[in-house]
């Protein structure tokens, strides 16, 4: 996060994105988003609209998308708010990419639970594919970022690739997922552990076991 920075405002950037405007489909979505907020509070729509804009940029560049300065200006203009307020929001939240990213944005969680469950191996598996932390690979396929907790500690370690989470990973799982993605196949999302459905305890409940079928009063057993 410390290396987050705005892409420089160059004539080339202006030439590429200066004409950014909603596609017909996104224009309808944008109207719908803005309509969710009361009259006079349209600025509240800035976060969903920045996300929409990032997705549209992503669709145009077939990547996860990012937010060039002219696009932020477009959103600011669309909501009739000062650009600096939009930039403040975009730079605050890490889910808005400030520089171009690759086709797949691999976000490896490195916070303590994931680290204890082997996120270092996951990171190594990514690096074995030629990725470098904070960089986009030369073929434009991968961008690797180490992120803080994504709230999947019960199924650590995990990565988020674009909109999907992959959990309960091993280095082999990770390599397989990356291979699948590179080959254009959609791997199974969510937990990769065999026999696990979501984040339920492996091998049945370990706590409150008596309450699985019916209510049970534990108070006398304390």
């Amino acid at each position: 996060m410390a290396d987050r920075h705005l892409a420089p405002d160059t004539p080339e950037l202006r030439a590429r994105w200066g004409a950014f405007a909603w596609t017909a489909e996104n224009a309808a979505k944008a109207r719908e988003v803005v309509a969710r907020y009361p009259e006079g509070r349209q600025r509240s729509a800035v976060m969903p609209l920045l996300d929409l804009a990032q997705r549209q940029v992503g669709a145009e560049t077939s990547t996860q998308g990012w937010l060039p300065i002219p696009v932020m200006e477009y959103v600011a203009h669309y909501l009739a708010m000062p650009v600096i307020r939009v930039v403040e929001v975009a730079t605050f939240y890490t889910m808005y990419n400030l520089v171009p990213v690759g086709r797949f944005h691999v976000q490896v969680c490195g916070t303590t639970p994931c680290m204890l469950r082997g996120s270092d191996d996951i990171m190594a598996a990514c690096k074995a594919k030629g990725m470098k932390k904070g960089h986009t690979s030369a073929d434009g396929l991968w961008t690797l970022t180490e992120v803080e907790c994504m709230g999947n500690c019960a199924s650590a370690p995990m990565v988020q690739i674009n909109d999907d989470n992959y959990e309960d990973l091993t280095a082999a799982d990770m390599t397989r997922i990356l291979d699948d993605l590179a080959a254009g196949r959609q791997p199974k999302t969510g937990t990769q552990a065999p026999g696990r459905h979501t984040v339920e305890p492996l091998g049945g409940p370990t706590s409150l076991a008596a309450m699985v079928d019916a209510n049970h009063d534990y108070r006398g057993e304390w």
């Binding site: 996060m1 600096i84 930039v87 730079t91």
Partner: peptide
């Protein structure tokens, strides 16, 4: 005149004018 803002977050916060 909204021209000064606080970009980024936490320890990396920076006060700047737009561009």
């Amino acid at each position: 005149v909204d021209e000064i803002g606080a970009l980024y977050r936490g320890e990396n916060t920076q006060i700047t004018t737009y561009l």
